[in-house]
Amino acid sequence: MAEFFINGFLVFLLAVIAIVAIQSIKVFSTVMLAGAYSLISAIIFVSLDAVDVAFTEAAVGAGLSTVLYIAAMKHLPKREKVVNDNTFFALVVCLVVGCLLVWASFDLPQIGDPMAPIHQHVGPYYITNTKTDMGIPNLVTGVLASYRGYDTLGETVVIFTAGLGVLLLLGDGRNNRDENE
């Protein structure tokens, strides 16, 4: 029961952060709020048994991306000029999408239900076979590195792509601008 309340509180915090992020006109604090959001999500991940994900989220989601934001913010205006002409449209879109998701949720298996399809199919295979196939106890690592290793290759390529993109946009792009001028 305690877990329930802790989780409830954390989730409540998330909601508060998200709403403050909408309201705040200081871009910098929004960025910091996003970091906090990631961090709290990481804690929730721990409580949901996803330790590896929590580590990654804390390190990459909360850490790395906040660093990126802060680095970028050095060159960017700190305040937002508030214009509210999109609010209605955004509200409608979000309501429609949200209602669709709520409607969908009625047929979702209940959280934690061990009889849910995902715990019956594919998942158990990893739990029973990883040890014999790979010989490592961490199932997540096992699946990541082997069964779905190809995803991980793709992930590496994504990082490479993004890195190359940043290099192209900021490294060369700027210098050449200067050359031209």
Binding site: A50, V60, S65, L68, V140, V158, I159
Partner: peptide, 20 residues
């Protein structure tokens, strides 16, 4: 473990998007 694996990938992809 499977959702965890997927999300590990997704987190990294998300950061890549943010960086770009």
């Amino acid at each position: 473990p499977l959702p965890h694996v997927l999300i590990l990938t997704a987190i990294v992809v998300g950061v890549a998007t943010t960086a770009l």
